[in-house]
Nucleic acid binder design. Structure first.
Lengths: 229, 229
DNA sequence: CGCTTAATTGATCAGGGTCAATCGTGGTGG
DNA sequence: CCACCACGATTGACCCTGATCAATTAAGCG
């Protein structure tokens, strides 16, 4: 693992950043994993772990964006997911990493040793329930991703991607894209050219504005939702 | 998985997913959920639950094959997964079903009330760990499905599909397909015609034999793996 | 033995990929 | 300070894979 494990201070508590639903899990204040992790900084573009590597830790994002991806023999890349603050990633079955993870932007992460957490889970049921919660969030995300990849045209994919990202953004219609066109393409199963063309088309149609390559202003949420079909 | 494998003691979960570890889960013999479920029969083609319906139970497959799928407004269908003996499905977050489930063949299922199982999990940590295990198996499956959908050509998809099913089959190179071409197409994000053409091509190339539409004999596993890239 | 539905095969079309040229922007060093 | 460079993004021209449309064959089943 090529991560520069940095400081381990008294921990800036990542309390504010715990995901969405908490049906099966427990509320933030007694986040069951709180004690077990160590904080790590990873700078943009750095690999967090590699496909095939030893699968002994997992992570939670405090800030920044992480991509998890798989590679085929010939180098083709499929990005499985982008992970933002509150998401857990790298939590997989098996002894080997089924995919790799890289920092899309500078990131602050909390790193958990799998064995420690499992041991903890033996004593405290809330830990396991929390893990289950995370696993199921990832599952739901993976499933809607599959829907996106399977049966949608290029424009639909890009529109859906923008809407998805707008949801996660503070300002619902001023989306800042942390990732490159190549990342978007590899997430959507397209080429950079197709992504670019779709975006340009949306702009020509007045659905969005592109002040620069990394920022998207959504002019008509409605139109975008129609495009996402 | 042959369609009516009524007999199949201890229902071993699919090798591809269970493969290595059982680190978080517990072995079958002390299956923690055993007591909590009720047995159900569903005949071929019947709906098990519908997208949008109330999400209060989940299922485990004893025998037969189940498909879970999502529909878009315009009727396009994406099959998320096929579930065979040992798989758990319908175990999702939220109050509404994010997808529907139907019996691909006559099925025997065990039905679990979600609330009961959660209550059980409060007392018995092994139950939650088992659920986590199932969620993560589904996650792994969804992720490799996304890889398949995103960055592979038609022939690659079909080849990978066959190999996947050969894995789950008793006789590794006499695969009986429980599902129609339409099902395969909707799983792979293709049309029936493309699926059919790929299969015919494989047969012409001597990679497989097609004694009838539902049976595939794999002549060269190696060649098929090459095709799956 | 027809009737119905699934599957195969063929001909054509179009969406998105590929290849290539250009633009834009941000960083670096003269 | 700005000229230059490097890299990402955009745009255009063309091509190819897989979708679409249509006809035929095969397989169940009453």
């Amino acid at each position: 693992m090529t991560v520069q494990t940095a400081i381990r201070p008294a921990c800036p508590p990542p309390a504010a950043l715990m995901g969405r639903t908490t049906r099966l899990g427990s509320p933030d204040q007694n986040e069951p994993l709180r004690a077990a992790g160590s904080v790590t900084q990873v700078s943009e573009g750095r690999e967090i772990f590699a496909q095939g590597a030893d699968n002994d830790v997992f992570y939670k994002v405090v800030s920044g964006v992480v991509r998890t991806c798989k590679f085929l023999n010939d180098g083709r890349r499929q990005i499985e997911a982008f992970h933002v603050a509150g998401d857990v990633f790298g939590f997989d079955l098996g002894d080997e990493r089924p995919m790799s993870a890289e920092a899309v932007s500078d990131c602050t992460l909390i790193c958990y040793r799998r064995r420690s957490v499992e041991a903890l889970g033996q004593k405290d049921g809330a830990v396991t329930r929390q893990l289950l919660q995370y696993a199921m969030q990832n599952l739901a995300q993976a499933q809607s991703h599959a829907l996106l990849l399977g049966r949608r045209g290029a424009a639909e994919k890009v529109a859906a991607f923008l809407l998805d990202w707008a949801d996660r953004s503070d300002q619902q219609n001023n989306v800042r894209l942390a990732m490159t066109r190549q990342d978007i393409a590899d997430y959507l199963g397209l080429t950079i050219e197709s992504v670019s063309r779709s975006l340009s088309q949306f702009e020509r149609d007045g659905v969005i504005a592109l002040p620069n390559a990394r920022d998207v202003r959504i002019r008509s949420n409605e139109a975008l939702e129609d495009l996402a079909a």
